[in-house]
Each structure stands twice: as structure tokens, then as C-alpha cells.
């Protein structure tokens, strides 16, 4: 029977999840494997496990529960070991590394921040800031909307301005929030956001962090900012947080 692994914690973790349902249908009960100072949160792995909504949610829920009681290193979804012994072997082999990561992340949570433009508001902004766009728009309006070429020209100019604004807002957002976070990690791209960034935030600084998000919302009313957290530190399990936004590519 192969073993599904949710995360790794210290065996001294005060509230490791028990009597919880994990992945699979019916949900496989969550168990704890202990090896020295480390513990793995696991369950049996169902046959033919796929990234279905219910299973993704189970993975996240088990880790949230565990994370609420103490620091946990979350596994990426879908990690399956051949059996329990293979899990405890890995814990034994890499104990020092995992213990170091647990210490580094102790008392900290991940907050993921995604921002997108409120379309009408950002169009309003780029128009009010660009005499060129205003002139083009006014000319089109007087021409009953303008012909195809004129509309295309206006739209292209606006789109370029919106893209510049996206880049600018992404930098602003990151700068404003990295000041109150301990580490920053750019989230995976290509999901339709102008910014998708995770921040590692100390428990004691959570209110400060959320207040900083509010400040960004106020200073950038054309942005829709969504915050998810506290989360298990998915983006910070490995050392080496990503570089600050202004750092160029290294040679």
C-alpha cells in the first residue's frame, strides 16, 4: 500500500491532525509517522489519485489544520511514497535539513496576494494621465466612434498604457508589502493576474501586513487586491527566497 504524504512537522508539534479525512473517496484517514524528532502527516494513497477538486481541498485542509497548531513543511500536492517505511527513511536521512527548515519557518505563515486591474478604473486612469489618449478618444467620439483604423489605433495605445500600468502596479504592490514581510516569493505566472506574490509573514506582524494591503488598496483604487492567508508556507519550504523585484537577471 503506497503512502500519500501531506507534510512534515516536528514530532513535538502540539496538535498534529488526527481523526481527519484526507485524499481519496472515501477519504483515507490521516495518520502520523514519527522518526526521531520529525513526524510525517500521511494517509494511505488511493489508487489512481488525480488532482480533483475534492482531493486538492483535502490536501489543503489537512495542512491548514496542522499549520494552525504549529509549523509544518507542506508537500506539493500528489507526493506518494512506496510505503510508510520509505517515508520514515527519508525523514531519517534528511532530518537535519528538515529540522533547519522547520526552525526557519516557525511562527510564520504564507500570505498570497493577487492583484488585477479594475478595468474601468484603470482605463479612466490611463486616459486622465495621457493627453494623447484623450485626444484620440475625443476625435473618435466626434467621428461617431471612429472608423476601424481609428478605433484600432486608440485601443492599441490604451492597451500599451494599461500594460505599463500593470508593470508599475506590480512593482508598487511588491515594494509596499515586502517591507513588512520576512521573505517574498513570486507566484507561478500565467494565471491572469498582474501580480501574484507570496509573502512570508511572522505571526506578530500579520496585522501590520494586512494593514499594508489596505493601504495599497486605498492608494491604488484601480487595483483589485486579493489576499489569501494565513497559509502553510508552500512557497518557502526550500531556502533561498526570490530576489527583490528590482534585481535584474544575474550573469
Amino acid at each position: 500500500m503506497s503512502t500519500y504524504v501531506y507534510g512534515i512537522a516536528a514530532s513535538s508539534h502540539p496538535a498534529l491532525p488526527k481523526d481527519m479525512g484526507g485524499v481519496g473517496d472515501p477519504a483515507r484517514p490521516v495518520r502520523i509517522l514519527t522518526e526521531g524528532e520529525l513526524a510525517a502527516i500521511v494517509s494511505d494513497a488511493p489508487e489512481g489519485l488525480r488532482p480533483k477538486r475534492k482531493d486538492l481541498l483535502a490536501h489543503q485542509t489537512v495542512l491548514s489544520e496542522a499549520g494552525a497548531g504549529g509549523v509544518v513543511l507542506p508537500m506539493r500536492f500528489g507526493s506518494v511514497a512506496p510505503d510508510d517505511a520509505a517515508v520514515t527513511e527519508v525523514l531519517a536521512e534528511r532530518a537535519e535539513h528538515y529540522l533547519e527548515r522547520l526552525r526557519a519557518l516557525d511562527g510564520r505563515d504564507e500570505y498570497n496576494v493577487k492583484a488585477s486591474h479594475n478595468e474601468e478604473a484603470v482605463l479612466h486612469r490611463v486616459m486622465s494621465e495621457s493627453p494623447e489618449i484623450r485626444a484620440l478618444a475625443e476625435a473618435n467620439r466626434q467621428a461617431g466612434g471612429g472608423n476601424y483604423e481609428q478605433r484600432l489605433q486608440l485601443g492599441e495605445t490604451v492597451a500599451a498604457a494599461v500594460q505599463r500600468q500593470e508593470a508599475e502596479d506590480a512593482v508598487d504592490l511588491r515594494h509596499a508589502l515586502e517591507a513588512v514581510a520576512e521573505a517574498v516569493s513570486a507566484g507561478p505566472e500565467s494565471t491572469g493576474w498582474l501580480a501574484n506574490v507570496s509573502f512570508l509573514v511572522d505571526h506578530g506582524a500579520a496585522e501590520t501586513f494586512l494593514a499594508a494591503v489596505e493601504d495599497v488598496r486605498k492608494s491604488h483604487p484601480h487595483l483589485d487586491v486579493r489576499v489569501n492567508g494565513p497559509l502553510p508556507p508552500y512557497s518557502f519550504v526550500e531556502p533561498g527566497p526570490s530576489e527583490p523585484a528590482e534585481t535584474g537577471p544575474r550573469v
Binding site: 481541498l57 507526493s79 511514497a81 527513511e89 527519508v90 507570496s198
Partner: peptide, 23 residues
């Protein structure tokens, strides 16, 4: 869930001794 989906799928600890289910 939707907002954190890519973190669950693309971030988090990977242990090369374990296999990952097909995505």
C-alpha cells in the same frame, strides 16, 4: 481553493524519492 490552487500544485516540498501523481 481556486486562489491557492497554483501554490498547492506548483509549490511545496518535493522529495525525489517519492513519485508525484499525474497532473
Amino acid at each position: 481553493l481556486y486562489d491557492v490552487l497554483e501554490l498547492i500544485l506548483d509549490r511545496g516540498l518535493v522529495i525525489d524519492a517519492f513519485i508525484r501523481v499525474s497532473l
